[in-house]
Amino acid sequence: MNAIEMTGLTKKYGERTAVKSLNLSIEQGTCFALLGVNGAGKTTTIKMLSCLTKPTSGDAVILGKSILTDPQAVKEIANISPQEMAVAPNLTVRENLELIAGIYGSEGRAAREKATRMIEEFDLSEVERQKAKTLSGGWQRRLSIAMALISEPQVLFLDEPTLGLDVLARRELWSVIEHLRGKVTIILTTHYMEEAESLSDSIGVMARGELKALGTAAELIARTGAKTFEDAFVALATGSKASA
């Protein structure tokens, strides 16, 4: 079953077309990577899917709910970790988590228990009582993703989840995302080739607002005749033939 179906999803900012007629289906429980350089239209796609901005034309249906006609229902079942950290600076790690749990309808004890579970799952206990603004980028990113997961979304949007993380923190996050596989439908955006390759079940390559190719890393390599996934990406994103 498809968790997400986009049909002709388009966003224009004035004259500029940020996302051009996306037609994409994403199977439930899989991890889909949107891969593209800066300005390719990844964030705009995520924003439309999470009902943060309205498409100029086209529609997307998320677990049966249209982002155009039923955004409230979509907001209940999805959550997002934005490209920027988007944490409340003067709240502690635990308070940030309980806040989001509360906003999605868990009260008092239920919110506290959910926060405790997230703190364990994301190894946040050593910074639990620290204000979010005092955390390093890596910790903030981890908190940001935990905040997206605490509402127990069925669909999770991760916009550049490993941006600014060092190698170790990145690997740790990969393992968290790995764990979610099969349970949550994930769309993540990245401009790291190896991230898309190792995390996702399928990859969409975006360039200048358009979906240039779709498939697994192996399929994309095979299709372009490239040696590595990086070469395949360059070929697909620029529209040139991969050098053999």
Partner: peptide, 13 residues
């Protein structure tokens, strides 16, 4: 400016 509101705009509030 910190996008904190963006996160919350994606919530049912």
């Amino acid at each position: 400016t910190t996008s904190f509101l963006m996160r919350l705009f994606a919530s049912p509030l």
